[in-house]
């Protein structure tokens, strides 16, 4: 990846004023910056559409991967350190286990509310005031799929951060790496 080392002083000042500056003080490209600012929310919206746009099972993993791709785009454009600031390590661990808890918790809730060990993950019998197919669709779409999506998104983002992060010889964290 190329970086602009020589730039006019005025441009650089303007870039500083607008916050267009990488972790090591380099000025980022305007086009990359603007495209990333437009594309990151759009891809996150698309991820949510894939996850909960249709009723029924399926789409949680794919939506989570697309959400992670938006975080990876953020990290590649604004620097890995900025990406880690958006999704810190502690929150990452909490969120990636939260999805699993949602998935298992809804199944356990079915078991507790219906008083039967065989009712684990039996979403259709969950006591909601709508008909059977709708109950199953709502629970699968808005609880189980969202849980899967949260886990997959945070785990994939964490994989990228762990692979791209690098501590240099002095033990000082080096947020931005040139590829």
């Amino acid at each position: 990846m190329s970086k602009r080392t020589v730039s006019k002083k005025g441009e650089r000042e303007a870039g500083k004023k607008e916050g267009r500056e990488g972790a090591d003080g380099e000025e980022r490209d305007v086009i990359v910056d603007t495209v990333a600012r437009v594309m990151i929310p759009l891809s996150q919206m698309f991820a949510l559409y894939v996850m909960i746009g249709t009723e029924g099972a399926g789409g949680g993993f794919q939506g989570g991967v697309i959400f992670a791709a938006s975080l990876i785009l953020l990290a590649t454009v604004f620097g890995v350190k900025k990406g880690r600031d958006v999704l810190p390590e502690g929150e990452n661990a909490i969120l990636s286990s939260l999805g699993l808890y949602i998935y298992a918790g809804v199944g356990l809730l079915c078991m507790v509310l219906l008083w039967g060990a065989a009712e684990y993950l039996n979403y259709g019998a969950f006591p909601l005031p709508v008909e059977y197919a709708l109950r199953r669709g709502y629970l699968v779409t808005y609880a189980v799929e969202v849980g899967i999506g949260i886990t997959v998104a945070t785990v994939f983002a964490s994989l990228f951060f762990d692979l791209a992060w690098r501590e240099d010889v002095l033990g000082r964290d080096e947020g931005r790496r040139d590829l």
Partner: peptide, 16 residues
């Protein structure tokens, strides 16, 4: 989503 998107990004991150 997985092969062309996330997997490629992971490989480039490791290549850095």
């Amino acid at each position: 989503a997985v092969g062309a998107g996330a997997s490629t990004a992971l490989m480039i991150a490791a290549l850095s």
